[in-house]
Write a protein that binds this DNA or RNA. Structure first.
Length: 585
DNA sequence: GCTACGAGCGCC
DNA sequence: AAAGGGCGCTCGTAGC
């Protein structure tokens, strides 16, 4: 199959742009225009000019490649009949770049992967300018050269590196683009109701802040502090929810001056409100919303949210009487089945460390936290009874399994135990628990040490690679000892080419390995579900939401997800599904 | 006016 | 020697 690189250029300004409007609405706004397309390909006369004169007939049925195909593919869709050609398949070189550990953007990818400098200046200069304003000028020629150059770089990335991307990753890249285009249906009434309620909370919070009346900025720490000084009371350093100092301050002064609570309510209600407004503004005529999702957004390979509507961090619980998740609903005649991989990370950690005892107990039917309690000699009992018989121990075991596997110390653990698992524990107590965990899990500790030792051997700007059990490798580049953000030097590396250095040690390397492996388990699940004809509307790390006909059951989905990959032989993989007429936690 | 960064907080 | 990790978004502020 022959390959062409395509790159559309479109008008944008401060209001009319993708980030504000989302791709779909941006490309269909009557104020906008797609004024140029550049196309290059082997044996093809390079083209750069208006869409209507492009050699579409020549590249019909070819493979079309673009840097951020989600955008260029949506251009093709938005232009509809005006392009009388379609690709046989498509490929995104931005996703390829991310997979390779390069920056995603074309400038960074060209620099690191092609050793070629390109400039985005011409495009920036086009901000706020219509093509008709610059046509027939010197700058227009520059812009054309720029657009053509982008297509050349894109094609070069494809030619040089596409074979470095395994088929499964290519499929995931395409799937991510497709799924986000498809989007989900939205319950508009619920959105409107939510916007009304949240607006009310926001307004009420404002009324509680004396500096708001004078036109002061609500969340300004400066304003807050000077108001405290005026009132003759001290102020806490941090206003955060989990600051003990702040909690104590609120206990003492909160009734007298309800400012901290009001600021917090304002911040939260406003952020949910913005989210809801974005959601509403992105509803398409058919009642569905497309969203952005970055394939390989994290260096571990996890997907990440994008363009103001991040579907991966919607609040689990209703706040202020508003449930954001429930605004996402199945299309008419369909239902959702929401399925989670059961404790995938701790299971993968146990597998990687060779903790067979723990995995055997899980396979026998113990919950992993029970299994941990058994193997640590903390408990003996029947399957599934720990939570009821000793809830305190159950929660502690859970906190230990989820909190201590990656090297957390006493301070962090006491914080995690309190904020995530409702266990009140001082640092001395936490320190004992940490020591106990490490002594009873020599394999985990050994795994940290092994990774750290190998990592450190690559210092002096070397590269350290962790071969995952799957088809992937984690790469840490330019390993050095230096101090960033601390007094003493630590071992640092880059996880994205040219990006800032990050501190690494055994616990983090272990975490990265586990997270990446769990991602690959999920990756196979995603493609397996689609292959079985169950389309996903979204996925969040270890959770998939499929939109299906009435005859599909949660058990069907569980079965498709509960598959141990060949390369993870011996690790029990399980899943739990529920069906719903809306997105629920 | 734009960009960068920290605080704070949402998720897994 | 000791160190949980991975993200994105909003707002406010500082610096260019």
């Amino acid at each position: 199959m022959r390959t062409a690189a395509i790159d559309f250029e479109s008008y944008y300004d401060g209001e009319l742009n993708i980030k504000e409007m989302g791709q779909w609405h941006y490309l269909r706004d009557p104020r906008g225009e797609i004024y140029m397309v550049s196309i290059v390909g082997e044996g093809l006369e390079p083209y750069c000019g208006p869409v209507k004169n492009a050699p579409w007939d020549r590249i019909n049925g070819w493979r079309w490649v673009a840097h951020n195909y989600s955008f260029d593919g949506e251009c093709v869709a938005a232009l509809g009949d005006r392009i009388k050609a379609r690709p046989a398949e498509y490929f995104c070189t931005a996703n390829l770049a991310a997979f390779l550990g390069s920056p995603r953007d074309l400038e960074g990818a060209s620099h690191h992967l092609l050793n070629k400098e390109i400039s985005k200046d011409p495009r920036k200069k086009m901000k706020g300018q219509k093509w008709s304003e610059v046509e027939n000028t010197e700058f227009a020629c520059e812009m054309q050269r720029y657009a053509l150059d982008d297509s050349y770089s894109c094609l070069e990335l494809y030619d040089k590196y596409q074979d470095k991307m395994p088929e499964i990753e290519k499929a995931l890249s395409r799937h991510t683009i497709q799924m986000a285009w498809r989007g989900f249906a939205v319950d508009r009434d619920r959105v409107d109701e939510g916007i009304r309620k949240l607006g009310q909370i926001k307004w009420e919070s404002e009324q509680k802040l004396p500096w708001f009346e004078d036109g002061g900025v609500v969340l300004s720490v400066k304003n807050f502090r000077s108001e405290c000084v005026k009132a003759g009371i001290p102020y806490p350093e941090s206003l955060s929810e989990d600051s003990e100092e702040c909690a104590a301050w609120e206990e003492k002064y909160g009734n007298q001056v309800p400012w901290v609570g009001a600021m917090r309510d304002w911040r939260k209600s406003n952020s949910y409100l913005v989210k809801m407004k974005v959601l509403r503004s992105r509803i398409r005529p058919d009642g569905t919303v497309a969203y952005g999702l970055k394939y390989f957004g994290a260096h571990t390979g996890r997907f990440s949210g994008d363009s103001r509507l991040n579907v991966q961090n919607l609040p689990r619980e209703p706040h202020y009487g508003v449930d954001l998740r429930s605004c996402i609903v199945p299309r008419p005649g369909k239902k959702f089945i929401i399925c989670d991989l059961s404790q995938i990370e701790p299971r993968v950690l146990a597998w990687l460390c060779g903790n067979h005892g723990l995995l055997d107990a899980v396979r026998e039917g113990y919950a992993i936290y029970e299994a941990f309690a058994i193997t640590a000699n903390l408990w003996k009992g029947e399957k599934g009874t720990l939570k009821k018989s000793n809830p305190k121990l159950y929660h502690l075991a859970k906190a230990m399994v989820l909190g201590l596997g990656y090297g957390a110390g006493a301070k962090k653990f006491s914080y995690l135990a309190k904020t995530s698992y409702g266990i009140d524990m001082d640092e001395t107590e936490a320190s004992r628990v940490v020591t106990m965990y490490r002594s009873k899990n020599p394999k985990v500790v050994g795994f940290w040490r092994q990774l750290e030792t190998a990592f450190r051997q690559s210092k002096d700007d070397g590269v350290y690679e962790i071969q995952l059990p799957s088809w992937r490798t984690l790469r840490y580049r330019n390993i050095r000892t230096q101090n960033i953000g601390r007094e003493k030097p630590g071992y640092t590396a880059q996880v994205v080419m040219g990006a800032p250095h990050i501190n690494f040690y055994g616990g983090i390397l272990c975490n990265n390995t586990v997270q990446a492996t769990a991602r690959d388990v999920m990756a196979e699940c995603i493609l397996r579900l689609e292959k079985a004809g169950l389309p996903l509307v979204l996925h969040v790390h270890d959770e998939a939401v499929v939109e299906v006909d009435a005859d599909v059951t949660p058990k069907d989905v569980e079965q498709l997800m509960s598959v141990t990959p060949d390369w993870l032989e011996g690790c029990p993989v399980a899943a739990e599904a529920v069906e719903a007429d809306k997105y629920v936690k």
